[in-house]
Design a protein around this nucleic acid. Sequence first.
DNA 1: GCCAACGTTGGC
DNA 2: GCCAACGTTGGC
Length: 152
Amino acid sequence: MAYWLMKSEPETFGIEHLKARGTALWDGVRNYQARNFLRQMAVGDEALFYHSNTKVPGIVGQMTISRAGYPDPTQFDPHHKYYDPKSTLDNPRWTGVDVKFGEIWSKQLPLEQLRLMPELESLALVRRGNRLSLMPVSPAEWQAIMKKHQSL
DNA sequence: GCCAACGTTGGC
DNA sequence: GCCAACGTTGGC
């Protein structure tokens, strides 16, 4: 089982939306590095839900991967903002996964605090200029984050 | 295959 | 709202 961190803008799709829906397609990833990580995800993997581009960015809760990678349907829809005319049905370019709501943390763990944790210095999230929207989290990083979360 | 121009991400 | 950093596009 692997661990992941996945970013989303709360105004577009926040953890409250996932809670209401229960399960949702994680769509709209249009970056090859992130897509390759999506393709590595397996059912049962655990993921941190991160709110980006908001007043206090940070980890706000947890979810699990409930369906492994499959073609992101939004790439085929000409009316959708994630439409990709270069993608074809028999050779889809972009991948999505299904995620299942886990929990909303009673206190979020802000980016500002994550930056202070020496255990996370190699995590892409805190690296200068990194814009990767989802990334693997090592077991050691996961444990450090959970420990910090429980101490809040 | 280089690289300038452009668009996007996302913290601040 | 600003802008640094980065990825992508397309001319050559």
